[in-house]
Write a protein that binds this DNA or RNA. Structure first.
Lengths: 350, 350
DNA sequence: CTGTTAGCGCTTTCAC
DNA sequence: GTGAAAGCGCTAACAG
């Protein structure tokens, strides 16, 4: 017996006694044949279980797949659970969906060189987060296909960015209007070597240009200096991964300092960090904001649908995703874009 | 001048004076040619900017793309922000990643018939959530490619499920050990017609077999009946979408009832619902658990990394995803699986 | 309006 | 160990 081969366009053509071109047209260019014939073809197709042109063959032939790849700097597992990355993906998905494209998720974190071969199927790439250097440098990915970067700036490609330094300056400045005696910073991924804990003289920091965390740090320091603090006055802690699990021990270390050493203002580089600090502080009976004031960064929903609400800077990550997606689809000019941020005054640093 | 055509395997072969088969072997079957030649080929490939076989052509030829599609019942925008769906995707991504596959995200919610043509590129499908009836019935998707369903049961396909009825019976029974005077249920997507608010006699519910919410309801009712309540004793509210924004108004309606009508026990069908209730209750100065006891469902991290911690049922969504992914990759036998759930006793219903 | 034809770029027997 | 050749299933000229 014959193998259970999938019905092809050619089978259908033979069956109906028309040419393959006509079948193809019936599916792709309705205006190229009589409605009656088209009806007949579509009907027969359904009867024979033919579901329309095969995507693999079609994409080989046309050169386009209607697939856009999103390359994430972190592992997928992490990215999907990070509220900021999620919002970003939402924005991307929204636009792609509306235009009949689909989303291929890739992690840039794995063996850098072997970004899966299946990637080359994509019509375009959106890259998010600081890529591993090798990937960045060689700009290995795009193989002359369009690429838009979000939150980092590989040379020669359009970027969607926020104004990190001014944004963190803005919130730090706001928080410092109320005098703080012991301000401290809790940063995300700031050191060259992985570190979960206090940053000391021993640590070297990531290079200033390549990392959004360095930009945010600069903003914090600018505001602190305006208030008469030197950078070394404000101790810094580093957190490698923006998850409850990783944040919690570092923040416990901070909150469990003796009363006269414990910071009274925590400038955090993400809402996740700030929210974890908030929870742990409440568990310890610290009063917010009397005993401890807190600021976040991102403006995620979780920080606002609670009491006390987080004081933070909002960046519109969904919109970042939308813009990148529009660029990649050619719906908007591919020019680097800087999105504004806004201060959200909540209850944790009124 | 010639168009800027992408380098192909054939170009490379011509350039090197070998056959295309040899180039192909250099990339795919190192044992089929001398190491020296392979080196030379790979070197020249890099020099000419050839990044290895084109995924579109390769997948047409081999019939496999190393892409697995995940079809989500809800919109991508929603799914990515839902903690349970996110965990699921994490589990799937973890396994696919480890085996060199990538993840294509599809939403089943859009025009049902037009699941994007690009879907047929996938080697297999993982479908999550109750599909729109038409999609379910015709099982239109798989086109004789493997399909694994999660949290619903299309006839003839393997499924990954949890024991919803016993799980909700378990938590309701636990919560009702402490006598409740006015228990109430807050359900997710239980009515045939969309409804955000109280469920009345007017509403028809979704059919029992097809929805996990009906199963959970059955568990709640079983526990209530053991305590001498009839189903009509416990008022029900319905929520269409598991987001803060949609949950909040419904829960406000409940919490703002006069003291002698306000429920003193809220059995919620998701942690998101319960957490939103918790926040709103705290804002209203209700004491938890003295004035109001609350249970959730899912066991998401957000509910445990806070105070008070949520009393809930934990389902391991990450593991659900892993199992489905293993099945689809043929790493595990494709047989329907029922995962266990566990009770988490937190502070909201001690 | 319909059919013929020439590949898209690659993998894979099967000879050599 | 290496090469020649036959398509995978489809689309887009082009000719009728």
């Amino acid at each position: 017996m014959s193998p259970p081969r999938r019905t092809t366009l050619k089978d259908l053509a033979r069956e109906l006694g028309v040419s393959t071109a006509t079948i193809s047209n019936a599916f792709n260019r309705p205006d190229q044949l009589s409605p009656a014939l088209r009806e007949r073809i579509l009907g027969e197709a359904k009867r024979l279980g033919y579901r329309g042109p095969d995507a693999k063959a079609r994409s080989l032939r046309t050169g386009r797949s209607r697939i856009i790849a999103v390359v994430l700097a972190e592992s997928l597992t992490y990215s999907i659970n990070d509220p900021v990355a999620s919002e970003l993906l939402s924005g991307i998905a929204e636009v792609l969906d509306a235009h009949g494209h689909t989303l291929l998720l890739l992690s840039g974190r794995q063996h850098v060189s072997q970004v899966p071969g299946s990637a080359s199927i994509a019509d375009g790439f959106i890259a998010y987060g600081l890529m591993p250097p090798s990937l960045m440098v060689s700009a290995d990915l795009p193989a002359q296909r369009p690429l838009v970067a979000i939150d980092f700036s590989p040379a020669g490609y359009p970027t969607v960015h926020i104004d990190n330094e001014p944004a963190s300056y803005m919130i730090a400045r706001y928080a410092l209007r109320t005098p703080a005696r012991r301000p401290a910073l809790v940063s995300l991924r700031l050191t060259a070597e992985p570190c979960n804990g206090r940053i000391t003289e021993e640590h070297t920091l990531l290079p200033p240009e390549s990392s959004i965390t360095r930009s945010r740090l600069a903003g914090f320091h600018r505001a602190l200096e305006e208030r008469g603090f030197t950078p070394s006055d404000a101790p810094m802690w580093n957190i490698e991964e923006n998850t409850f699990e990783v944040c919690a021990p570092v923040l416990e270390e901070i909150l469990d300092l003796p009363d006269d050493e414990r910071p009274d203002l925590l400038l955090c580089m993400s809402d996740r960090i700030a929210l974890t600090a908030l929870t742990l502080a409440e568990q310890r009976g610290l009063r917010i904001p009397e005993d401890l004031r807190l600021t976040g960064f991102d403006g995620i929903a979780e920080g606002q649908y609670r009491a006390p609400r987080l004081t933070t800077v909002r960046q519109d990550s969904v919109e970042k995703g939308r813009i990148a997606a529009r660029m990649i689809l050619g719906l908007a000019p591919s020019e680097s874009t800087l999105l504004p941020t806004t201060l959200i005054v909540g209850d944790t640093a009124p």
